[in-house]
Amino acid sequence: MNKLLEVDNLSIGFTQYFKGLKQRKLNVISDLTIDLYENEILAVLGSSGSGKSLLAHGILGILPPNAEVNGLMYYKNEELTDELKEKLRGNTISLIPQSVNYLNPLMKIKYQAIGYIEDESLKNEKLKKQEEIFERYNLDKTVGDMYPHQLSGGMARKVLISTALLNNPKIIIADEPTPGLDKKSVDETITDLIDLKDKGVSVILITHDIDTAIKTSDRIAILYLGYIIEVTETKNFKYNNENLLHPYTKALFNALPENGFKLTNGHQPSYLNIPKGCPYQDNCEYKTDKCLKKVPPLVKIGTSLVRCYYPIIN
């Protein structure tokens, strides 16, 4: 399988003001390394507020100007420069944003779906295509003439998906498509994502909903305090925790209500207090002095990648 996208040691930080003129630096993403292959769904799993959306915005090149970004990204082995990002976004790589809040409230849906096009004939062509795609997602013809506030939650989600599909993208980044949805809508979203993969689109699913990740993805990358700590095949999450290697990933599996709701002590610190050394040291029962001094590198073990000096291998 061909590698479509590669993200190497991406870090994103912000300098912010607090209490007047004092400054502090917030490292929201410290080391994010993932790759995406053709025809796969990769889930990036992290708790809410962990800066997962920044990954999406980083790949698309739409981060705010005060963000400090380091690391390299490649699309089909070509370095993803700012120029290339601008060329690809909305065409080859598109985003399914979190909510309708990303839509312009004063603009009809159909004009937002196609984007700004000056040429009349090109515009009409695009509108025709938009109607076709809306129809495929069972959206009524009248939806195109509606404004965002007239959409129900389920309709809005379909509008966002079909908009993302309009330019035949190769990669779709779906940013938290499920929170706040009820069970039926979540199931529909899961079907939609698998359907995208069947159409030959690769998906990066950014989520904190582990259930949705397990039901849709081929691989899961686990984000902890801004570090990718493990990338594993989704099947390793399904029956038992034997093939999960990082202590946090194991704890996460055991903590699910259906897997025993097991208690692990410790707590996930804030981004202002990321420890030196391994990010998981506060909670880890296997830690040694080595873990407190230096961040472990991401190493390959079997088909998994893991960031731990003492991975748990059964």
Binding site: S48, A255, F261, T264
Partner: peptide, 14 residues
Amino acid sequence: TTMLDAVTQVQIWD
């Protein structure tokens, strides 16, 4: 606990 990860969710409820 909706916005927290599964590990923290268990800690909070416990």
